[in-house]
Each structure stands twice: as structure tokens, then as C-alpha cells.
Design a protein around this nucleic acid. Structure first.
Length: 876
RNA sequence: GGUCGUUUAGCUCAGCUGGUUAGAGCGCUGCAUUCACAUUGCAGAGGUCAGUGGUUCGAGUCCACUAACGACCACCA
């Protein structure tokens, strides 16, 4: 079992083999973990990556963080489920395949036909999915592949169908006419977030509909004015207040319009003439005004971007041509009072860049404001809002709670139908004006299936429970199977950019389907930017392929570089040097282990990671107290989602405490095999969740078991016999270098005999420890094998090392003047602290209301400060 | 236009509820090297914590304003 480790850690030799071993062990699957029935569950559903493309570094960061959460919980006895999957990303995928087919064969999806096209899409999906899953494995993600899901696979299709039917039955899903973002080229609606705004120069025309109409209006789109049914002014605007409520019949460019003057506070008095021509059919804002004022809605432009019939000479023209024609008419009739060049934002299709035409269209919606019986009359919006507001779902960082709530409060009914082919079909059939909703086609002739598909977020919104067997595992309001065990999930870890798009939908869907939250915590990671701080994107070509970096530095190094120094919600820059630094660290850990294991006996190797070895020297007590303190820091930080801080503490311990100090001591003090192996075992366990491969590789070089399921150590917590050392002690050793060269010089000049006696004088409260380490290093570097050590009276400015008859004096770095200054400052500081604390402790209200342990802690603090003050005063 | 974030060493970033002398990694400078590791070790230089004002015994931390950069949302008649 025990085998030698290579001189340098080579990830290539281990990673694939180890991953395969993990997978074959079955322990990614919670059912295979040997756990008591009451073991608490810990579930994370992996945010399913879009199958449009291979993974990028952002995904790697996500996998690193989630795998850490998962592995840490697995080590702590949880029934851990990390559930993998991919998202069909309806529009994005269809678009990508369309482009590909067009580039390769010059054909459109219409050329291929629905069936053939969907087959092409499916081939594409299979291909990219394989790539994605391979990349995910390379990261070392301990996902339960037996539960792999896809938002468009058969099970999910059943779930989506059921959800649609349930919501329809409840009256939450309805078909209605609304203004949608319509792309005349793609023949599809776009979600608001699929619309891109482009700044462009436009002409703002100010004119009157007709000579006899009293108010001039401004617009950049005169052709839509054919559909105007009102003019809106600000109610505060004195210029127009007399007209409000009046109705006019005007002849606008040869067409008859009925115009009512209405008041609306959203109209800006300063823009143009302060009056707005209301075109309900072609503007979202106007649509709302029309609803409030019962205005007629007149469609002017059709789905192809042409002017509709019944508009005389304008019918059949494209919007742009019609615009020119109308402007000419207005000019000829002297109705234009101003033409102005302005810059405005044109809304464009994110796919084809065509200008968006806002059009009324029949679509399926989810009503977010409607009371839902199964939610005790709350609306979806309200219920989802409550989860955040009453703290049932916590956001990290907290500020995203506000963003979530703001967005939720402004949420309108969610349009869920999309005019694309790739996606979940809508279970609706039409016959004339009749609509049928059901799982199967209705009986009878002449029913036509709805050709649209569902918004991709509809299925991904169900992700936490559609992956756990809903609806089969949910009967009469009772959960069973996976759903009972693993829902609600613990953490949703995802990027903040989809907080609104995805997280909010998951909340509503879960509330509707199960009446419960989908998760307790939302951890939002930042974006990985490129080295210059720009977003990585395909179009810019500045993306980094995780596989290449992994190949160069190893998976663990990539993971660690993404974990350390990263805080939730904050973006971080890609930095290859950082990865190299982590690679070096991993090699350091490897060599620490190599050194320890090579010197360990068979008995040493069998030491339990739970029980402190004994007896202990001073140095042992010190390193063990550091180890225990690190474990506490790690536990506390991981509990707070502060992964960077925990890793920092481990890193510092491993390199600066264990390698730099304790191993050097161990070389001299000898017989430390047991305790060293004990430390290594604990260290590997604690490091495993961040850098699983190298830790597993080392572990298996001297154990038959798999480290992945090794339990988090339960080290005794009796710290009273341990040594506590401040973090800055390393600074006190600047004299060592000098000592070493002094001794060497003395020797080479034959000034001293090769004495076996070393005596050093060390000052400070931890003189014994400093002494031990100092003597150790001096001895180590000078080849003196045994020492006789002693501590002398502390002095404030010098350190003396005697070698036999020769004495070496080493001056400390402390300047008495500066020291005095420091003490004075500290005294003032302490006095302030004491005043402040005394005041608080004299405050009856504080003492009465604050928890007892806080009061006690404050009292202790006060006493400590007082004692310190006395010391300082004495020293001065 | 609204909301939010960022600004700390040459670079990339930590710094929790205000509390001794502001930290890390990389880079830089000097020194060391048959040692588990040169993917190494030791030491050093380098910061008026973006600016101004305020609260406080005490501010990198809290408040206000300013500036630069960035993100999101909305709208642009």
C-alpha cells in the first residue's frame, strides 16, 4: 500500500485515474453513502450550463465553489446530493444551429422543415453536452451522474406539461393579447432581456395631425401615428389643462383619427411639446395608457413589418417607406413645425439586429399578481417576495436581496410563449376561436396544435424539483422519494447576472408546485473577467479554455486560484500568475507530505486523525494548537460561505507554520513520525474539498481508503495545554540569519571550538518558543547537533547567543524612542477603550437587554484592558 | 434617468460587527543552496487605504459630498 511519491507532483498522472476511481466508488451518489437514516440532507442543484457552448472559466469557478461546499458537507456526515444537468437554452441554441446550418449549407430552418431541423438541433445538443460533461469531470466535480438531467429530456417534459396544465387549471396561465417585442425578421417574440438597445441618430418630428388640431406632438415614428387614439399630456401642464377630456376627429394624412386628450403623469413636460401621441398598438407605455383610459387599439403594422390594410395609400408599404410618405405629406401641408436630429436608443433583436416592432400579439402568460388558492390567496409575486423579505431565503451578499425585491415588485405578467421550434411545446390546440388546453389533442376534427414553445426559463425555473422526481414524487401534497429527501435544497450557487432571470422564476415555480421555497441560500459569485478587466465573451475572443489551463497547471491549481481571494458578488480578473502560484503551493503540500511519509514508520502511518498523539514537546503543542485553530477558522468560514478566508488560513498554516517552522524543528528534535503523520492526515482531510486530486493522490499513497469520504476530524478541543502564538512571531527572527553567519565566520576563523553547547537569550512573553525555534535554526544551519538551552532575563534591545566560550550579541530592532512613542499611543488608545466600555457597562439598559454572555465578554475585555493599561503605565 | 458596486503596495486582491505597528500572493532587491521541495529558503524595499468634509477617545472600516471606472434596470414619445 505504501509507495514512494515522485519528487514533483504531476497532476496528469493522477487526475483522470482518481476521478474514475471516485466515480466507480459510487460515493457521488448519496444513496451509496453509508449513512444513518436521520443524516441531514445537503443538496445543491448545479445551475445547468447552456448546451450552446463549452464551458468557460466562470463555470470552473462555479464548479470549484460548489464542489467545495459539497465535499465539505460530505466529510461532515451529510447526505450530500449535487445534481448535474444541462439547459436546452431554447432560443440561444436554435439560433446557434440556425447560423451553423446557414453557414455550412446556406439553408434556413424553413428550408429544412420543423422535423429535420429539430433533429439537427438534437445532434448538436448531444455533441456539446458530451463536451460539457467532460469538462465538468476534469474539474473534479463530485456530481451524482446517476441523476443527470436535461431541461428538455423526457422526464422534464412530463414535469413541464404537468406544470402548465396545473397552472392553467388554477387560472394562473392565460392567453392574452399584449404588446410584445416582435422581430419581423425572425418572426418571433423576444423577451425583454433579449432586446438590445443601440444608440443611433434619429429625426424627431414635431407636427400637428391636422391644421384644426390644437396640440402639436413629437415623434420619431410618424408612420405609427396612423394608429393614434389619444394625445397624452402631463396633468400639471397648464398649457394643455383646458383640453383634457376633449375628443377630436382629425384628418391625418388622409386618414381619419379619433383623438382624445388624456392626462398621464408619465408624460414629460419638457420633452418636445410636452404632448405625446398615444399609439396603443405599438408602444408598451401607450398600451398601458389605453388600458387605463379605455382607448381603442388600432394596429398599424403587421407581423412582417408592413402597414396593414385599411390605411389607404400607405397599406402594404414597409414602415420606413410609409414614414417618408407621411413626412412628405406633413411637409406639403405645412404641418411640421420642427425637425430635430436626436440620438435615441433603437431596440434591436439580439440575434439578427433588426429593429424590434412592438406589436400586440396573442401569447401565453403567467399571471403574477393573481391570487392563488393553493398559496392562501397570495399571488406568485407576493409569495416569492415574502420568501426574501421574511428571510426564509437568504442572499449572499445581502445587497442582492434588495435587487431581487426591487425587481420582483416591478414584475409584470410573464410571457412564456416563444415563436421558436426548439423547446417544450405548448399543450394547446385551436379551432377557430376555440382554445383547448390538455395533455392530448382534443377529440374531433380541425384542431390545430399551437406551434409555439415555452420560454426556456419555464423549465429551468422548475429545476430544483423537476430533477427530484416531481410530479411522480408528489401526491396529495405529500412528497416522497428524492423530493422528500432533498427538497428544498440548501444552496443555489450561481452568477448574479441571472438573479432576476432565473432565481426569481425558481421561487415562483417552487412555491406554486410544492408550496415551499426552492432553496435556503442564494450564493451569488462574481464574474471572471479577462486580464484587462473586460468581460470574457465569444465575440471578443478573450475567453479562456479551462481545459488548457488545467492541462498546464492541473485541476487543483485552477480550482484553488479561483477560490482564494474571491468574495461573493465581486468580479475577479483572470490571472495566470496566480494559478502558477497555486500550482507551486500544491507542489509544496506534495513535498511536505513526501518528506513526512518517507520518514514515517508503519505505526506512525496508522495514527488516528481524531486523537492527539502524546507526549508533546513545546513545539508539538504549538503546531497542534495552530492546527486546531485553523480547523476552527475553516469551520467558521465555511459556515459563513467565506471560502477564501478558510483557504487562506489553511494555506498560511501549511506553508508558513508547518513547512517553514515545524518541519525544521522536527528535523532536529526527531522521533516526530506519529505527530507528523497525524498532522498530514488532518491537513489532507481539510484541504480535500478545495484541492481534491492532490490530496487524494497523497492519501492513497499510504492509505487503503478513499479520502473523499474520510470524515472531518473530531480533534479534542482541550486547548489549555496548548500554546498560543501571535501571528507576527516570524518577524522576531531577523536575527537568525545574522546568527548563522556569525557562527560560520567564527568557525571558519577558528575562533570557536566545535562546541556542543549553544545558549541563547531571548526576550518576550513567548521566549521559550522563540528560543526553541531560534536554537533549532541556528543549530540546523551550523551543523551543531545538540543544544543546551536556557532563557535569560529579557532585555528590550538585544539578543545574545553564546557558543562555548564565544558570545555573539545580536541587536534587536527595537528603538527605545519609538517604543516609548508606541506605548504612549497605546495607553491613550486603551484609556479610550476603557472609558467607552465602562460607559456601556454602566448603562443599565445595555446590561438588562444584552445577552448575558455578551455582557460577560465585555466585562472580561474591560478587565483585560485595565490590566494591560497597568502594565504599560508601569513600563513607562 | 434609477439602483448598486468598485477605488487599499508596481500588479492581482483580502481586510467580519470602527480598536495596538493596514495584510497576502506575484513582481522587485539582497543573501543562501550537496537539505522533502529552485514549482525552494531567509531577509528587505514598497501604502498620507481615490479626494474633501463630518461623527467618535479612536475611521481603511460609519455618514455626506466629489471624482474615475464598472454593472444592472428602466426609458427615450
Amino acid at each position: 500500500m505504501k509507495h514512494e511519491l515522485e519528487k514533483i507532483y504531476n497532476p496528469d498522472l493522477f487526475e483522470d485515474k482518481i476521478y474514475q476511481q471516485w466515480e466507480e466508488s459510487g460515493f457521488f451518489n448519496p444513496d451509496k453513502l453509508n449513512l444513518p437514516d436521520d443524516a441531514p440532507a445537503y443538496t445543491i442543484v448545479l445551475p445547468p450550463p447552456n448546451i450552446t457552448a463549452k464551458l468557460h472559466l466562470g463555470h470552473s469557478a462555479m464548479l470549484a465553489i460548489e464542489d467545495l461546499m459539497i465535499r465539505y458537507r460530505r466529510q461532515n456526515g451529510y447526505r450530500v446530493l449535487w445534481l448535474p444537468g444541462t439547459d436546452h437554452a431554447a432560443i440561444a441554441t436554435q439560433n446557434m444551429v440556425e447560423k451553423k446550418i446557414f453557414a455550412e449549407r446556406g439553408k434556413t430552418r424553413h428550408d429544412l422543415g420543423r422535423e429535420n431541423f429539430l433533429e439537427e438541433v438534437n445532434n448538436f445538443v448531444v455533441e456539446t453536452q458530451a463536451t460539457i460533461l467532460n469538462q465538468t469531470r476534469k474539474m473534479g466535480a463530485s456530481l451524482d451522474w446517476s441523476r443527470l438531467a436535461f431541461t428538455l429530456d423526457e422526464e422534464r417534459q412530463r414535469a413541464v406539461l404537468k406544470m402548465f396544465l396545473d397552472m392553467h387549471q388554477e387560472g394562473i396561465i392565460y392567453r392574452g393579447e399584449r404588446i410584445v417585442n416582435w422581430c419581423p425578421r425572425c418572426h418571433s417574440t423576444l423577451a425583454d432581456d433579449e432586446v438590445e438597445y443601440k444608440e443611433q441618430a434619429a429625426k424627431l418630428y414635431t407636427f400637428k395631425y391636422s391644421p384644426d388640431f390644437p396640440i402639436a406632438i413629437s415623434t420619431t415614428r410618424p408612420e405609427t401615428k396612423l394608429g393614434d387614439t389619444a394625445v397624452a399630456v402631463n396633468p400639471k401642464d397648464k398649457r394643455y389643462s383646458d383640453y383634457i377630456g376633449k375628443e377630436y376627429v382629425v384628418n391625418f394624412c388622409g386618414q381619419t383619427l379619433k383623438i382624445k386628450i388624456i392626462a398621464d403623469r408619465n408624460v414629460e413636460m419638457d420633452f418636445g411639446t410636452g404632448a405625446l401621441g398615444v399609439t396603443p398598438a405599438h408602444s408598451v407605455v401607450d398600451w398601458h395608457m389605453a388600458e387605463e383610459n379605455n382607448l381603442e387599439i388600432i394596429k398599424v403594422i403587421n407581423e412582417d413589418g408592413f402597414i396593414k390594410d385599411d390605411f389607404g395609400v400607405y397599406s402594404g408599404l414597409t414602415a420606413l417607406v410609409a414614414r417618408d410618405k407621411i413626412v412628405n405629406y406633413l411637409r406639403e401641408h405645412n404641418l411640421i413645425t420642427q425637425e430635430e436630429e436626436i440620438v435615441n436608443n433603437l431596440s434591436c433583436c439580439y440575434r439578427c439586429d433588426s429593429p424590434i416592432e412592438p406589436l400586440p400579439s396573442k401569447q401565453w402568460f403567467i399571471a403574477v399578481d393573481k391570487p392563488v388558492v393553493r398559496l392562501q390567496g397570495k399571488s406568485l409575486k407576493q409569495a416569492a417576495l415574502d420568501l426574501a423579505q421574511n428571510g426564509e431565503v437568504k442572499f449572499l451578499p445581502e445587497r442582492f436581496n434588495k435587487r431581487y425585491c426591487d425587481w420582483m415588485e416591478n414584475l409584470h405578467d410573464w410571457c412564456i410563449s416563444r415563436q421558436i421550434w426548439f423547446g417544450h411545446s405548448i399543450p394547446a390546440w385551436y379551432k377557430g376561436a376555440e382554445v383547448y388546453v390538455g395533455a392530448e389533442a382534443p377529440i374531433g376534427e380541425g384542431w390545430v396544435k399551437d406551434e409555439d414553445t415555452l420560454d426556456t426559463w419555464f423549465s429551468s425555473g422548475m429545476w430544483t424539483f423537476s430533477t427530484l422526481g416531481w410530479p411522480d414524487n408528489y401526491k396529495d401534497g405529500v412528497k416522497s422519494g428524492d423530493l422528500a429527501r432533498f427538497h428544498p435544497t440548501q444552496v443555489l450557487e450561481t452568477g448574479y447576472e441571472i438573479l432576476t432571470l432565473w432565481v426569481s422564476r425558481m421561487m415562483m415555480m417552487s412555491l406554486f408546485a410544492l408550496g415551499e421555497k426552492p432553496f435556503s441560500h442564494v450564493y451569488l459569485h462574481g464574474t471572471i473577467l479577462d486580464e484587462s478587466g473586460k468581460k470574457m465573451s465569444k465575440s471578443k475572443g478573450n475567453g479562456i479554455d479551462p481545459l488548457e489551463v488545467i492541462k498546464k497547471y492541473g485541476s487543483d491549481a485552477v480550482r484553488l486560484s479561483l477560490l482564494m481571494g474571491a468574495t461573493p458578488g465581486n468580479d475577479s480578473r483572470y490571472n495566470e500568475e496566480k494559478i502558477a502560484a497555486k500550482r507551486n503551493f500544491i507542489n509544496k503540500l506534495w513535498n511536505i507530505s513526501r518528506f513526512i511519509l518517507s520518514g514515517a514508520s508503519e505505526d506512525d502511518l496508522n495514527v488516528s486523525a481524531d486523537i492527539l498523539p502524546k507526549p508533546l514537546t513545546l513545539a508539538d503543542r504549538w503546531i497542534l494548537s495552530e492546527l486546531i485553530s485553523v480547523r476552527k477558522i475553516v469551520d467558521a468560514s465555511y459556515a459563513d460561505f467565506n471560502y477564501s478566508y478558510g483557504a487562506d488560513a489553511l494555506y498560511d498554516f501549511t506553508w508558513n507554520k508547518l513547512a517553514d517552522w515545524y518541519l525544521e524543528i522536527a528535523k532536529v528534535e526527531k522521533n516526530k513520525g506519529t505527530i507528523l503523520v497525524y498532522i498530514v492526515k488532518n491537513l489532507l482531510i481539510m484541504w480535500h474539498s478545495s484541492i481534491p486530486y492532490v490530496t487524494e493522490a497523497i492519501w492513497q499513497s499510504f492509505n487503503d481508503s478513499i479520502l473523499m469520504i474520510e470524515q472531518w476530524p473530531k480533534i479534542e478541543d482541550k486547548l489549555d495545554f496548548l500554546v498560543s502564538v501571535s501571528e507576527n512571531d516570524g518577524d522576531n527572527f531577523s536575527f537568525i540569519q545574522e546568527a548563522i553567519s556569525s557562527i560560520r565566520n567564527a568557525r571558519s576563523e577558528n575562533k570557536i571550538e566545535p562546541s556542543r553547547k549553544v545558549q541563547a537569550l531571548v526576550f518576550g512573553e513567548r521566549a521559550d518558543l522563540l528560543f526553541s525555534q531560534a536554537a533549532l535554526l541556528v543549530g540546523l544551519r551550523t551543523g551543531i547537533e545538540s543544544f543546551e538551552l536556557g532563557v535569560d532575563v529579557p532585555t528590550s534591545d538585544s539578543i545574545k547567543i553564546s557558543l562555548g566560550k564565544t558570545e555573539i550579541y545580536l541587536l534587536g530592532a527595537i528603538d527605545p524612542e519609538k517604543e516609548k512613542e508606541r506605548l504612549l499611543k497605546e495607553r491613550a488608545n486603551l484609556e479610550g477603550l476603557i472609558t467607552n466600555l465602562s460607559q456601556r457597562l454602566n448603562n443599565e439598559e445595555f446590561v438588562a437587554r444584552a445577552p448575558k454572555d455578551i455582557v460577560r465578554a465585555e466585562t472580561d475585555k474591560l478587565n483585560r484592558y485595565k490590566a494591560e493599561l497597568e502594565n504599560i503605565t508601569a513600563a513607562l
